[in-house]
Every structure is written in C-alpha cells, then in structure tokens.
Computed example of a mutant assay.
Amino acid sequence: MLRNIPPILSPDLLHALAAMGHGDDIVIADANFPGTSMGRRLLRLDGISATDTLEAVLGLLPLDSFVPDPALVMEVVDDPDAVPEIVADFQTIIDATADHPAKVARLERFAFYERAKEAFAVIQTGETRLYGNIILKKGVIG
C-alpha cells in the first residue's frame, strides 16, 4: 500500500503512468471502446467509471502545456457540435484537477481511433455512457 495514491489505480496502471514520457498519450476508454484491438498496452479498470479514472489519473499525471490540445475526445457521429454529458463532466474534472487545465478538443471518430492506436496505453474502464473516451498527453513536472 502507498499513501496518497487513488486506490482505483492498479499497480500496472501506476507503472504505465510512471513509464510514460513527455508527449506520450494515454487513452481512458469506455466499455464499448475496442481497447484490445486498439491498444499497444491494454489496462483494465472494469467497474470503474471513466470520470473517476480521469480524476485519479490527473491527480498524478501532468497535462502537456506545450501543445494546444492535450485532452481530446471523440466527436459524436453525425453531430460533431454535440457535447455529451460525459464530455462536459470530463471538462469539469480537468478544470478542477489538472495542473494545466485545458479546453477539451474533439477528433472525428476514426481520427480518434488512429490516435489511440499510437497511444502508450489504453485504460479500458467500465464506463457505460456513450462517448466516454478521452486521450491525454503527458506533460512535464517543473
């Protein structure tokens, strides 16, 4: 056991977060996301929401402050201007938790998938809300 580490973060996930370098991406994905086929390294947090996972991860991982869009979500198919409730929740968590809060940017569905394939890791959560996927770019600790 360690202090001040959110208990929902598994040892494998903690190792991945520590092993990531500046500029590496990590995906927090919902239960519908094709994590096994998309991720180089798949980490599972079944039964945990994407929002709880985001809050726990951002407590440890700095967002990149050298890029314009360090947090990316998937656009709603056929309605790219829609903001699903979970995306609004992601923004609230980033505003409250991130060391460098940033506005969530959007990627078209297949562009999101291509970016996810290149990510350091995919965290597959038990999130059941649609569009509960976000890519974070790791920053540096000053």
Rank of each mutant, 00 (worst) to 15 (best):
D78H: 15
H15E: 13
L61Q: 07
E118W: 04
Y113D: 06
G23F: 04
L9G: 13
I28F: 08
A50P: 00
A29V: 05
L72D: 10
M38L: 14
P34R: 08
T36I: 13
T36L: 13
H15W: 10
A50W: 01
K138M: 06
G23L: 03
K137S: 00
F112R: 02
L45M: 10
N133P: 02
L72M: 14
V83C: 15
P101T: 07
A121E: 03
K103E: 12
I86T: 10
P70I: 03
A116F: 12
D12V: 09
E55K: 12
E75T: 15
D52Q: 06
R41E: 07
G35H: 08
I86G: 04
V104W: 06
T128D: 03
H22E: 01
E108R: 14
R41I: 02
I26P: 06
G47M: 01
P68R: 14
A18W: 01
I123Y: 08
L9N: 11
N32P: 05
S65N: 02
V77H: 14
S49N: 02
R40Q: 09
V73W: 10
A102L: 03
N133W: 09
L45W: 07
A16Q: 04
T125I: 08
L60N: 13
D78G: 14
D30E: 08
A105E: 07
R44N: 11
D69W: 15
A88C: 06
L72R: 12
R129H: 08
G132W: 00
S10Q: 10
P11Y: 04
F33A: 05
V67E: 06
G47T: 05
G59F: 14
G132V: 03
I26N: 00
D89W: 09
I135F: 05
R40K: 15
P68L: 14
G59Y: 12
L45N: 05
G132M: 01
S49I: 04
V83G: 13
N133T: 03
